[in-house]
Design a protein around this nucleic acid. Sequence first.
DNA 1: AATCAAATTCGTATCGTTACGATTGGCAAA
DNA 2: TTTGCCAATCGTAACGATACGAATTTGATT
Lengths: 339, 339
Amino acid sequence: MAPPARPNLRQIAASLGLSVTTVSRALKEGPEVHPRTRARVQQAAAKAGYTPNVHGLALRTGRTRMIAAILQLETRAYMADLAKVPFIEGMTLAASENGYALSIFSTGPEEDQLWSLQRLVQSGISDGIIITRMVAKDPRIAFLKERSIPFVAFGRSETKPDYAYVDVDNEAMMREATTKLVAENHRRIALHLLTRDDETCEQRLRGYRQALTKANLPFDPVLVGYDEFTMAASEIFFESVLDLPKPATALMCSSELGLLGAIAALRKRGLVPGRDVGLFVRDNTRLSKYLAVPLLAHFVDLAQAGRLAVDALLRQIDDPGSPPTQIVMPGHFERYSER
Amino acid sequence: MAPPARPNLRQIAASLGLSVTTVSRALKEGPEVHPRTRARVQQAAAKAGYTPNVHGLALRTGRTRMIAAILQLETRAYMADLAKVPFIEGMTLAASENGYALSIFSTGPEEDQLWSLQRLVQSGISDGIIITRMVAKDPRIAFLKERSIPFVAFGRSETKPDYAYVDVDNEAMMREATTKLVAENHRRIALHLLTRDDETCEQRLRGYRQALTKANLPFDPVLVGYDEFTMAASEIFFESVLDLPKPATALMCSSELGLLGAIAALRKRGLVPGRDVGLFVRDNTRLSKYLAVPLLAHFVDLAQAGRLAVDALLRQIDDPGSPPTQIVMPGHFERYSER
DNA sequence: AATCAAATTCGTATCGTTACGATTGGCAAA
DNA sequence: TTTGCCAATCGTAACGATACGAATTTGATT
């Protein structure tokens, strides 16, 4: 009645009149088994649909063939951070292509990041960890290093980190984007960032200021807003800079959702987005392209970033001594038009 | 030098002068340990930061305390299906609250769904599985049932399934939405669906047709489009129905992205979205609300759906004999305005 | 003090796998 | 035939946890 249980080494060994040890060796390409025996074993294993039991293997070898990623939830559960989707997809695909499973753990927005990480490490569930949303002095780095746990960061916590990371060159992106806007004669450029201690935002702010300095333009703190990750927050901030005595003439958004907020703020004032006021957006999903608003966009392939992060992690797991992979993702500017 | 390795039962037992068995029992609230001993053990375990090793536990009990979810990737890697984010977040939170880890597996858009499922089941990695994107006669159901593997479907493959599911009442949603549009004097209502064999789309089409029949309106196949999940596809379809000799006067979108396509199509023709042409959207992330376009929206809390799916799965794992949980998520209509 | 049952605690086997040392068999050389 | 060596295979222990039956302690009763 019941379908055959998952075959294990013992069953295969019994069916072939061999010992478990030999079967185990034969499946593992070791040099110590007679080629004839190896062929027999591999054939039998394939026929029985044998796959090693992850837990037995993990218990014995200490390797689980699982990797984990920790993501941080948004404040509003229903509010999608669009960038997550391609990133997750890239990671899962790369993991499964390499015979690994990817577990995703979410932490609440207010939860202590170090503590969640400790719990995850403690459970011993994974061979390595991908952490995201780096902050300036990130305590998680020291924690993982102390315990020699393979990890890859999505983002950097410092300018010259000595650990593996995949990051986007936010600084250069903002420097170039700001320079491009300046070249279009914008002199008051508003910038909307996320929470203050996020390192990504610091990088962006640096790039922005570098461009201003280079163009001999003053830095006006009023034009920079730190806020949460929603359209509403973005809209409120951009409204404030549009209503200044000397209003902003260009708006720089951190994400597609921020762009929607900016567009709403403009329309509310009868301003035509992208024509009356310049727009820049960091686009992760091409959503911005379909808004039929002329703007400057910077696109980064986050699915690829996810793949690269997993690759870097697996490399570290396989060879703990190897130098940490450090990748800064290339992105490119595009000018979306009205069509 | 090296920080203390992960403590195990043996170490704790040794430090207390107890046997491993007793320590194991004491941590498990069984009735057989002296309260004094239990207190000592629990205190020592807490102090040592003990958490059970997942693999040892899994090997012995056959239970892994992991659940898996299979999601299907979109055709375009960078194109986000927004609904996934809250769903994933709801699942991970509910899982971790119950001491479970959630593994996410993605299958390519063209990959055979049954085969991916087989691989996942084969690996024996999880105690239960959440499957999504049900098709009309879904072979995965029989596969999982045969092997008595606990599972919950997000969506239904039939009208009266005998397995656990969490679904949205797409049929009622579309029936009511269509009825509302008819009440606003729309007579030619266009409907954009996804791929043809997706059961969700069938449900929506049924609701749409029911409303038309009830209102004595003819069903015009030209007004129904099946297409992929992008703004571009949506835009093309809605353009086609706007350019008919007898054009559509209301557009029904399957998702936020579809709505963006619809709006683009309208603007291109100089039509004011929501005023010149009626709009309906199934909104999963409140994104539609911030477009400042007057429209009829139906909002479903997918984060909650994710939680419920996990709850249902855990119930089934804990008590395999219990009747399968069947939940149809409530949603509600909202009228978003221009503000 | 002796007895007995109940309350606690302990010891051993086991899940599936691999590491490592021990054992077997075959074959060539003496 | 005996010896020695190498190739091939085997047996046992171990990873960390729990189940189950056995052993010990406790405490009340005679």
